[in-house]
Structures are given as C-alpha cells and as structure tokens.
Design a protein around this nucleic acid. Structure first.
Length: 469
RNA sequence: GGCACCAUAGCCAAGAGGUAAGGCAGAGGUCUGCAAAACCUUUACGCCCCGGUUCAACUCCGGGUGGUGCCUCCA
C-alpha cells in the first residue's frame, strides 16, 4: 500500500514499524460545540483507512483524543454559564451520537486531555530536563530554536516565520515560534497542580503525550486536516522527538477541506453546517457516501445538490442489493440454460476483476473515489446478470457478498432492512389476486394505497417486490 | 511577502507518457397492462492557455492565467 506522506511530499510504500500491526493517531475534536461537516471529513476518512488496514489483515490500534481543556472550552463554558467539565461531557456525548450515525467506529482509545495529566506533566518534565523547554512568568515554553529540523513537516523556514508579522508578540517568549506547553493559571480558569505551579496544558502537548502513552515513541500514521500541519503537527513533532530522540510518526496524512462556495468551511467564518443539522434532512449514509466519493486530499464543495446526487447514487447501489436478494430467492440452484451458465461465469469473472481493481484503488493512497467506481461497475454487471432468466442463485449471491464486502470496508450500508408491515403485506396479497384476474384498475388502486403507507411495489418476473418509498 | 495545492463533459469525480473510470442530470430505445427498476445507445477528436522534451503528453519540464489553503484558533 502506498500513502501520500506529507513529511516527504510524495507517495511512499507503507511499512509499519511492527510487522502486521499499525498504530495510528488522529487529532480529535475540541468538544465545545457540535461538529460540522468539515470536521466530519477526517473522522469518516480515517475511519475508512482504519477499516481498510484491518481488512488487509493488520491489527490496528487507533487513538483519537478529545481536547476537553483549552481557550475555546473556557470561553464557551463562560458564555454558557457552565463549567468546562460540564461543557466537555455534554459535547463528548453529542460527538459520540453524531459519529455513530455516520458509521464512524469508536477509536481503540479515546483519551481526554484532562485524564492524561500525569503523562502530560511527565513529558513536559522531560523537555525541561533536557533543556528543550523553559519556564517564564506565565508558563513553560518549548524552545523551537533548540529543535533540530523544526519546520520540516510544513517546510516553513524558521526565519520566514519570524519575519511574518502574523506571529503574536509575546514578551515572555524567547523566540516568536516558541509555544506554550504549560499555561499558568489565570483567575477563574480550571487548573491542575504541576512543578511549575497551577495551570493547564498547551494544546500541542496533549497529543504528544497521548500518542506516547498509548502507541509508544514512534507511531506509524498520524492524521489530521491540512490546517493542522502548522503549527499543531509541527509542534507535536518537535516536542515528541525532542523528548524521545526518535522519529515521532513515519507517515503524516492530511485531508483537504470542505468548502462552501469554494471557500473553506470553518467555525470562525460562520459558513458551516453541523452534522447534527444535516442529519435532520439527509440520511447519514448519504453523507458518508458523499464524503468518500472524492479523494481525501482534494478539496470538496458542499451543497444540497451534491448531497442529492450522492443520495441518488447510493440508492442505485441499494436497489441493486435488494434486487439481487429478491431475484436470488427465486432463482434455481443450477443454471437453467446455456445463456444462464455463461452469464454466471461472466459475472464471477467480472467480480474477480473488480475485487482486484478495488484493492488496487485502495492501495494507491486509499483512493475511495476510485474504489466507488468499481462498486458501480459491479452493480451494472450484477444487474445485467440478474436479468438473465435461469441465472443460478449462487452467482447472484456471490456478487451480493462481494458488494457487501466492499461496502463494509467503506462503512456504507448497502442493505436497507425494510420491514414490511402486516397491513402492507395484506394489500400486496390482494393486489396479486387482482393482477391474476387482470383487474388493472383494482391493481393500480391498491398500489396507490400501498404508496400512501410509504411503500413502493414493483412488478417483476419474480412477482411483486416491495420496498420503502 | 514565504510555503503548498488545484484547474478533466451540464454538474460531481477518478485516471494515466500510448490515445479519457464511475456517478448525477438530459436524450433516444428495449422490457412492462401501466408504472417502477433494470439494460442498451447517446453527451469531452478533447482534459485552463502558451511553449518545450518525446515516435507519442491531458499525463513530464518551463512560463503564464485563474482559484484555494497554510503562515493566527481552525478538520
């Protein structure tokens, strides 16, 4: 498998540190609000990467943190008149609800910053002891000048960062790019005891500490949005490598943004849509499918039209699975004709090719867009085969199994478990009788009744097929 | 100013030095009592523009143009 590594700015063959095992870390949400569709992209994307690695036989340990203490948390809690803890608990819960609906599997470990204080303090202690961090009146700062290769991920030269007028002037820092690993307590802020006095951790240090705690000093894959490359990931590298003297992460993967009218969606711009709101209108699987239908590093626009299109596309897949299921149920065990035998063979052969194509697509920087293309090719092949009279059930079931297998890796539900209520079933039976009597008027009338109950009925060579509207 | 990325049909979107996947929408057709679904055909002699390398480039190189992002909290 090849993955685009931001550190190298090219695709590289992925080789884990420990054979057969992958340790990956993803920066999780700061839990001060519902997350928006832009935040959802990496959650969904890297969930698929994890599923694919598992599908390929790796044992994956995946860590995603919750940032439950920082400036935004403090500010929002004050606005809402709740404690930071209460705010965090609430939105961790909300995160879990939305994530579950999007089919995002919980990470192996989901640590909270405030529950890893010992690890954080230990790491800061190491940095101070090794001379990589210094204490000032308002905190403990990482000394970027002492960090060899600082800027290697973002490729920002240190001098340019200094020259840029954007770096906040802070009298207590020795160097403009230095950053806080510990912030001393200000009035009214939550705090924890430390050798440098009461205070709270800086943002970057928590990820370094958690990754080290759960995954060790060198991890295989670290993921996040492109906007985290600098300064967040750059700083994580600096801290972790200063402390351990070893490479922090071998692969850095960064997803592109979701845009609205070609502009980055962000909380500060206010042009965002929360997942919670979107799920009020659209099926969660449609949202997930939409996110997977372009390559993870590309920017993608968000609009209702695009979600509609994704919905139609997903429906095509679902219609296929339910048709296969339906036709297979009535299909013979062995081919009913020469043509049927040939069709079965062709489908099996196409399926084999498409599985190979799926793997090739995913192996190439986990190209989900390409992989989805193979899904539709399989859909067409299966639909074609299903229309051949006498096609053996086994051939259809094999295609269905492959479809489910691929959709399973993508985490997209291709089966809609439609439960047909008794009243609808009774109407379907009545309609069958009307049709047998060629009473079309009555047949159409019953179909309208069934529609009114939220179900659609199709007439097929195998009889009536019922599905939710 | 520094550093990156992107530019493919009406829309979305893969892709590769050897002649453009797939989806949505549209058109025509087959099937059907009707409908739905499905299937078939059809929609880029061309992949922003100009040069160059090559037997061959949309795919590589150079230069433009346009757009986006990061450099500040941010997926």
């Amino acid at each position: 498998m090849r993955l685009y590594n931001t550190l190298a700015r090219e695709k590289q063959e992925f080789v884990p540190v420990h054979p057969g095992e992958v340790r990956m870390y993803a920066c999780g949400p700061t839990v001060y609000n519902y997350f928006h569709i832009g935040n959802a992209r990496p959650f969904v994307l890297f969930d698929v990467l994890r599923r694919y690695l598992e599908y390929r036989g790796y044992k994956v340990t995946f860590v995603q943190n919750f940032t439950d203490i920082d400036d935004k948390m403090i500010r929002r809690a004050a606005e809402e008149g709740v404690t930071v803890r209460e705010l965090a608990d609430r939105f961790i819960g909300e995160y879990r609800k939305d994530a579950a609906r999007l089919g995002i599997r919980p990470a192996t470990h989901q640590p909270l910053a405030t529950e890893c204080m010992a690890d954080i303090l230990d790491l800061i202690g190491t940095l101070v002891a090794k001379g990589f961090a210094y204490e000032t009146e308002d905190g403990v700062y990482f000394d970027t000048a002492k960090s060899e290769g600082y800027g290697k991920l973002s490729r920002f030269p240190l001098e340019d960062l200094e020259a840029g007028a954007r770096v906040e002037i802070c009298a207590t820092k020795q160097h403009p790019t230095d950053f806080a690993v510990w912030k001393k307590k200000k009035e009214g802020e939550p705090s924890w005891p430390s050798p440098w006095g009461e205070g709270r951790p800086g943002w970057h240090i928590e990820c370094s500490a958690m990754a080290r705690r759960y995954l060790g000093e060198t991890i295989d894959i670290h993921t996040g949005g492109q906007d985290l490359v600098f300064p967040h990931h750059e700083n994580e590298i600096a801290q972790s490598e200063a402390a351990s003297g070893k490479p922090f992460a071998n692969f850095w993967l960064h997803n592109g943004f979701i845009n609205v009218d070609n502009e980055k969606m962000s909380k500060s711009k206010g042009n965002f849509f929360t997942v919670r709101d979107i799920l009020g209108t659209y099926d969660a699987d449609v949202v997930r499918f939409f996110l997977l239908s372009s390559h993870y590093r590309s920017p993608v626009n968000f609009s209702a039209e695009l979600l509609e299109a994704a919905g139609s596309a997903l429906t095509r897949i679902r219609t296929c699975t339910s048709n296969l299921e339906f036709v297979a149920a009535a299909a013979p065990g062995t081919a009913g004709s020469e043509d049927a035998a040939r069709a079965a063979e062709a489908l099996a052969s196409t399926g084999k090719d498409l599985r190979t194509a799926f793997l090739a697509g995913m192996d190439d920087d986990f190209n989900t867009a390409d992989a989805i293309g193979t899904v539709f090719e399989l859909v067409r092949a299966a639909n074609t085969a299903a229309a051949v009279p006498g096609i053996p059930a086994g051939a259809l079931r094999d295609a269905l199994a492959l479809l489910r297998e691929i959709c399973g890796v993508l985490g997209v539900a291709c089966d809609e478990k439609a439960h047909v209520p008794a009243d609808v079933a009774a109407l379907v039976d009545q309609r069958a009788a009307a049709r047998a009597a060629k009473d079309w008027k009555r047949s159409d009338g019953i179909r309208a009744e069934i529609r009114a109950l939220g179900f659609d009925v199709k007439d097929t060579p195998q009889g009536q097929q019922v599905a939710p509207l």
